[in-house]
Amino acid sequence: MFAKPARLFLLIQAVAVIPLLAGLYFQWPLPISIGLAAVAAFTLARVWHEEAWWPWIHLAFLPAVFITTQLQIDSYWFLLAFILTWLIFGRISASRVPLFLSEQQALEALAQIIPPGQRFLDVGAGTGRVLAYLAQHRPDLQLSGVEMALLPWLMGRCTLGSRIGWLRADYQTLDFADYDCIYAYLSPAAMPDLWRKARAEMKEGAILISNSFAIDEQEPTQTLPLHDWKNGKLLIWQM
């Protein structure tokens, strides 16, 4: 119904203000009014949002705003928090991809399963952790990574060796035909677009690997459990 999660979030919170205003009109205690609004937002999110975590964010949002206003925090701290969030995550409202760092189990598994001599691309590469590990353990690979958020990209720029291609760009601007193996640790919201691009551009026999996140109605060629703290897995599709 609503393509953009950010717009849907605002709509739900706007509707949830109605019970808050009703509580203020009838002079109910403010915590009760806020609680009603939070429950209303939670209920709407259960209906309208697909992802399971959104209702809990909606439930906590108005109470968190109320508590914050009682703390009398200077306004410049909010500006600094916004700037820091943008530096770390970039335009997350558009990309719908937070910063995920691949665990050690994923790094070790990748080093074992990537065929020799592959042109490897890490999509949404964060700080370059995957590329740094593969550069050390798989010197036969031609390594590249792409990241949009400024601060993680700068960290990668300062730490990765010169033989690794390190791009600050939207991965949609790249040609997937230039790579034999593409790795992504994104989010459920980003997987449909990634799959469409991979199907359109990757060559026959090329490999797409997703850390943890599946693609709806696309059964992976292979699934490799990681046995990490979140029971993650590598999902592998061969084109």
Results as ranks from 00 to 15, higher is better:
158 C>S: 14
18 I>A: 10
95 S>A: 09
126 G>I: 05
176 F>K: 01
121 L>S: 03
155 M>R: 14
46 R>T: 05
10 L>T: 04
26 F>I: 10
203 K>I: 12
71 L>R: 06
112 Q>G: 01
157 R>F: 13
154 L>N: 06
160 L>R: 09
140 D>V: 12
4 K>A: 14
14 A>Q: 06
22 A>M: 12
189 A>D: 05
202 M>G: 07
153 W>A: 04
26 F>H: 07
139 P>V: 03
38 A>E: 04
6 A>E: 05
145 G>H: 05
225 P>E: 05
131 L>K: 02
12 I>N: 03
59 L>G: 01
66 F>G: 00
82 F>E: 12
237 W>C: 02
79 L>G: 11
87 L>M: 11
135 A>Q: 11
205 G>E: 07
52 A>C: 10
7 R>K: 14
2 F>M: 13
236 I>T: 01
211 N>S: 07
206 A>P: 09
148 M>F: 05
216 D>L: 04
80 L>A: 14
133 Y>W: 15
183 Y>V: 02
175 D>K: 11
91 R>Q: 08
87 L>Q: 03
111 A>C: 06
141 L>A: 10
79 L>E: 06
190 A>D: 02
120 F>V: 15
147 E>K: 15
52 A>Q: 15
209 I>Q: 00
77 W>R: 09
2 F>D: 09
113 I>K: 08
118 Q>F: 05
169 A>D: 14
67 I>Q: 13
236 I>Y: 02
110 L>W: 00
191 M>K: 10
165 G>S: 08
105 Q>S: 08
214 A>K: 06
84 L>M: 12
15 V>K: 07
151 L>W: 15
217 E>H: 15
174 L>A: 02
20 L>T: 06
232 G>P: 00
171 Y>P: 00
40 A>W: 01
236 I>H: 00
191 M>R: 10
162 S>C: 09
25 Y>E: 07
10 L>F: 07
67 I>D: 12
55 P>R: 12
202 M>L: 11
16 A>K: 03
188 P>R: 05
104 Q>P: 00
76 Y>E: 07
162 S>Y: 10
1 M>L: 14
142 Q>D: 10
58 H>M: 13
74 D>A: 15
207 I>C: 08
157 R>M: 11
142 Q>E: 13
149 A>S: 07
128 G>R: 10
221 T>F: 14
209 I>T: 00
87 L>V: 08
81 A>T: 13
222 Q>M: 04
237 W>H: 03
13 Q>D: 08
184 A>T: 00
133 Y>K: 08
149 A>V: 07
104 Q>W: 00
105 Q>K: 13
35 G>S: 11
17 V>C: 12
77 W>A: 12
116 P>D: 14
43 T>S: 14
184 A>V: 01
46 R>K: 12
84 L>W: 09
106 A>S: 12
221 T>V: 07
38 A>I: 01
